[in-house]
């Protein structure tokens, strides 16, 4: 957001292309010439039709996968392997089922060599912050879906990341819990102010949370449009939806997203995949 800031962007993708080799032996292009910049402390939401390469984008930023072409920069430096200072809340549950809640949250610091006593102390702190004090000894299967997401959040944030990647973190939750979690996420985000890339299918959620919303095209994904969300902070995700500016924003972004969603749907509903891959013009 702060354009006067001389420091490099937290995340920068330059002309990134990602291809996968499919089991059949052919090559599948998941991302094509994607450009994306996220400033330090900026909250960026990414929306796009299913299968357009959103999760792939995050795996490139985190260093779990290398780009096929183009540059991925984190804090100005190229990404090689897993980058330091990054946290990732996965699309699927990824807390360790054999560790207690406390051990799950303390895992990050312990992996990084923080003494056990201190790691446990920090973990208790974070559990309190996400409202899970008293559940330290439970195992993940003894928690609700929403509670597990909070464990995942605490587990990620305890490492005090400079960059937080979230892949549809609340998709599996019911609407009420999702709104509560949105508010909670904003509150926690204010604590450490990492740069965030937040993937979602829920446009309302995207606008309520983010400083900017990026719309990706139907696969192969590339940026179709970027929208700055000028809504003032601190926000309350539950109330901001009724704001006139919010509604207007929603309509603009939906206009842009709708074509892509329909295109993606037509492709999967219609005959063979990857035959017709019309080049999308980027805005």
């Amino acid at each position: 957001m702060t354009h006067s800031d001389p420091s490099p962007p937290a995340i920068e993708l330059r002309d990134v292309t990602k291809r996968f080799r499919t089991p059949a032996g052919s090559v599948h292009t998941a991302l094509r010439r994607l450009n994306l910049t996220v400033a330090p402390g900026e909250f960026c939401a990414v929306v796009g039709p299913t299968g357009c390469g959103k999760s792939t984008t995050l795996s490139l930023i985190s260093g779990l996968e290398p780009a096929s072409r183009g540059e991925v920069l984190v804090d100005g430096g190229p990404v090689r392997g897993i980058s330091e200072g990054i946290a990732f809340v996965f699309q699927n549950d990824a807390v360790f089922p054999w560790k207690s809640v406390l051990a799950n949250v303390a895992a990050g610091p312990l992996f990084r060599g923080v003494p056990r006593r201190e790691a446990v102390e920090q973990a208790r702190d974070w559990l309190r912050r996400v409202g899970l004090a008293g559940f330290e000894d439970r195992h993940p299967h003894q928690l609700s879906g929403g509670m597990r997401k909070r464990v995942a959040l605490a587990q990620s944030l305890i490492n005090r990341p400079r960059i937080l990647l979230m892949d549809e973190p609340f998709a599996a939750l019911d609407v009420q819990t999702r709104q509560i979690m949105s508010d909670e996420l904003l509150r926690l985000w204010e604590l450490t102010r990492p740069a965030v890339v937040f993937i979602t299918h829920d446009l309302e959620e995207a606008i309520a949370l983010a400083d900017k919303v990026v719309v990706l095209t139907a696969g192969p994904g590339t940026v179709k449009a970027t929208f700055e969300v000028g809504l003032p902070r601190p926000r309350r995700a539950q109330e901001i939806r009724f704001d006139a500016a919010f509604v207007e924003m929603y309509q603009r972004i939906w206009e842009s997203l709708r074509d892509e969603v329909e295109l993606a749907y037509a492709r999967t509903a219609a005959a063979p995949p990857s035959t017709a891959e019309p080049e999308k013009e980027t805005l």
């Binding site: 897993i82 699927n92 990824a94 895992a107 992996f111 490492n159």
Partner: peptide, 25 residues
Amino acid sequence: DRNLVANARILGASKRQVTFHVVLP
């Protein structure tokens, strides 16, 4: 679960730690 391995690596686990904290359990 590859997700769990990825999660551990992002959280800062070394190869050894992945083996003992994720693969073995």
